[in-house]
Design a protein around this nucleic acid. Structure first.
Lengths: 253, 253
DNA sequence: CTGTTATGCGTAGACCATACGCAGAACTAG
DNA sequence: CTAGTTCTGCGTATGGTCTACGCATAACAG
């Protein structure tokens, strides 16, 4: 009676359970010609090469020399495939902080690690995420982030909030720079010329009397100079960590 | 020769120019039966009612009693329609800060205004944004945000960074809470039961030895209690503004 | 050898965006 | 008043998407 109490809320899709190492292959029937990891790898390869929009079931199947519908024996839907793609796309987390690292050093490294992944695989930003993380590597990232805050005065709930704050920032910053890159490719402009072109366009559109502050920003040439996006990233990250530091100080009081 | 120098970078789509009040109707030909604002309003109505996924060209046309292809006389593509939907979906900006407001009060109000819009129209979060803002209301929001920082010691570039930081945070927070809501609707669980169900599922999946920090968070019941999401939002916002305040203090030194 | 079960995958249906072209309306020039 | 021009509405058609369903076949258990 109490033995089969796995009915814990909404069921996990079979392919996700597979990612956690549960679920063994049934002994009957013909040998599977494909495997979930092979499919996911192929899909990731397509996304790396031609972007997320190129990832269709038929394209992934072609990549594997299989028929489109063969994939549905392994993944329940395209959304499920996308979820698994995100998991392997992020890859293993950067590992726990070193024993001598303070929380700030650790979180900085953690944030830069995600930053690097998203720079490399900008298609991750286009995957419509449909819920909190449930895949192994995703939770691995979360674990390592939490460990950075282990010795601090923060409560468990606050640690979680801080992590969400940082990961949100990283994703947002990556989204913005990826948009510039993709926009320039779509418009046929070289990336360095993108922001100046944008700046010129906005200058032409706005009335300086109705948009004085914006006009001042444009006049200062803020959007023209293509300063290192990494500096921009570091700036915002330090702002957030300053805020976290203020909280930690207050809790220690 | 120097009269028609509008060839400033990648051209603005005609419908967007229309949103800025440029572009007059040609005097020839039959009267248009539709209009861009009418189409955009219909599309927004569909998105409000049935979500962004329900917004197809045929559905919008049906809403207007027109044929699908008729819409293409007014917007160049569906992406263009989406861009216009975002503009009217956000609506007018909350206005400039009051004359007695300090920067922190102003930015707080600004952030909450976007927060409220995104709560109301969560489909805005699902629109794949494809570049920096070029529509009138979007730039209006930016203008009002910049004005909040008018009297501070920050440089123009820093003001922009702060704004991006905040708007990114607002979007991120809204995305997370919207995911819970949508996820619970998709899984047929009532929203209040969503996070506990998630918490139980993760507990079942992870090995406490490999995920000690995460295990501790779950044991503390952090994800169970459905504390007011607005408190959560206010927490993160204050963290960020603390960071901005630290910067302003340093610049004033 | 028989029954069971899982696999590969072909077919088909229900959508989607949109390129193209035609009939006719509404204006301007003469 | 007429002819020409230009723009509108929209029907048709193409090529793409995901995926429900069902059938033949392969591999195992007894």
């Amino acid at each position: 009676m109490a033995a089969k109490k796995d009915d814990t809320g909404p069921a996990l899709p079979p392919a996700i359970e597979g990612a956690w190492g549960l679920r063994e292959r049934p002994p009957k029937g013909p040998r599977p010609g494909l495997s979930v990891p092979a499919i996911v790898d192929a899909a990731v390869r397509v996304a790396d090469a031609d972007g997320l929009a190129a990832v269709s079931m038929s394209r992934v199947a072609r990549e594997l020399g299989a028929a489109t519908m063969a994939l549905y024996r392994y993944v329940g839907s395209k959304d499920e495939l996308l979820m698994l793609m995100v998991d392997t796309g992020y890859g293993p987390s950067p590992g726990p902080p070193g024993p001598k690292d303070d929380w700030r050093t650790g979180l900085t490294r953690w944030a830069w690690a995600e930053h690097d992944v998203l720079r490399q695989r900008s298609w991750l930003l286009h995957v419509p995420i449909s819920g909190p993380p449930i895949t192994p590597q995703q939770l691995g990232w979360m674990e390592d982030g939490l460990r950075c805050l282990d010795g601090t005065t923060l409560g468990e709930s606050e640690k979680m909030s801080v992590l969400l704050l940082i990961t949100g920032y990283v994703r947002n910053e990556a989204t913005l720079t990826a948009q510039i890159a993709e926009g320039s490719r779509a418009a046929g402009v070289e990336p360095a010329e993108m922001m100046p072109a944008y700046s010129r366009m906005v200058s032409r559109l706005i009335d300086p009397a109705r948009f004085p502050a914006l006009h001042r920003v444009l006049a200062a040439g803020v959007l023209n100079q293509d300063d290192d996006p990494d500096d921009e990233f570091a700036f915002g990250l330090d702002r957030i960590l300053d805020g976290v530091e203020a909280l930690i100080q207050r809790r220690a009081h």
